[in-house]
Design a protein around this nucleic acid. Sequence first.
RNA 1: GGCGAGGUUGCGGAGCGGUCAAACGCAACAGACUGUAAAUCUGUCGCCCUAGCGGCUUCGGAGGUUCGAAUCCUCCCCUCGCCA
Length: 420
Amino acid sequence: MSSMPGTLAEQMAYLTKGAVDVVRGSELRAKLEQAAGKERPLVVKVGFDPTAPDLHLGHTVLIRKMKHFQDLGHTVVFLIGDFTGLIGDPTGRSKARPPLTRDEIDQNADTYRAQVFKLLDPDRTVVEFNSRWLGALRSEDWIRLAASYNVAQMLERRHFRQRYDRGQPIAIHEFLYPLTQAFDSVHLAADVELGGTDQLFNLNVGRDVMPSFDLPPQVVMTVPLLVGLDGAEKMSKSAGNYVGITEPPNEMFGKLMSISDALMWSWYELLTDLPMVEIERLRARVGAGDLHPKQAKQDLGRRIVADFHSDDAAVLAEREFERRFTGGALPSELEERAVVVRPAGARLSAVMVEVGFAGSNSAATRLIDQGSVRVDGERIVDRGARFPPDAGPFVLQVGKRRVVRVIPRPAGREPVEVKK
RNA sequence: GGCGAGGUUGCGGAGCGGUCAAACGCAACAGACUGUAAAUCUGUCGCCCUAGCGGCUUCGGAGGUUCGAAUCCUCCCCUCGCCA
């Protein structure tokens, strides 16, 4: 990894790829130039919630942008906003969150590290906690900080503006919140701050406040929200349209292959390091019929899996996918489930429920009626199908994706199976 | 504090005494077609079983009226508008 690759124009293109806002491009360019001249890397700040992080690809858009700066030799500060976490939730509306303990915060920080370093270079990443300096501020420091901004500026934020216009209350501490974030930038002397588009206002407050502390304003850059697997909603855990970065390679690859062709290009842009020109070229080739979209998607899948696992794992995942879905074979590693069978035998529908392939007997029966259930490859349409108490192991499939090897166990002899 | 609207099956949203397990749309799931893509078409979408013009439990909560209630009455809980 060379420390300063490419011309300034190339660096700019790399860093601003996929970004929504850049305030301002000219300043970023100047800072890059300066950094190169003085051989002093830029300090790039990004704040994160201290609440339990379980990252999915949506979060990695921002993390990847951090990586881009690292790739060009800059230093990234991974800032954990534990100050507010220690105090409890500050933003009115929502029900007060119980404050996190120091232990919880540290534990969450470790979880962050474990996930985030799949993309980031630990040597160029500084993990910080803002309680370190915010907790040490004296009353006069707070007043000085508050003096660096004014109400009119605060009301530029749409959320505040609306509430103010409607006569809804805005507590003073809500104004303090963006200011503390701004103070983080002051303390770190950040050159650049990155965040999601929803953070634009807060990031700009930092930019505005810094000159009052004799610092040049930070450059602000925002990245967009990633659209989830469904191609409609933003990726989120609650919507269920996400790909977790700790998911196993096969699962990850499978999910990636299920996205629509249209969505693929946005993911190429936001989830890979490929330059835009390269992506446009691929897209043109697909448009011209020169490259099959499925191939383009497989390439994308392999890249992403490689980022969070390894090149080998990615290749294997692709092969397994081909084998299984294009070739119609069973997965090479079948999960096994022991199922207790009473002397009277077991109904197929009950087995489906026990194995977790159906939520209820009724649901299982419907699936059988619809012809989606196979036992050892044979389609079963008899809703009353049962297995004798002495049945041997068999492969149970429901739909295309759900497969398991069922190991029948006679009831009574062994202790009831332990669930994990 | 005063006035008004409303809480229905994952979401949105009908229903306003029986024919309601509850229209319709979305989401989801399955089948067909495919590139496990999208689109499209078809079906399913409370639970139980001996699977039937079957049984059971649902329409914020608790009571009540009625042969019969998601639909009417009483009380309670909650949400959302408007006024101070």
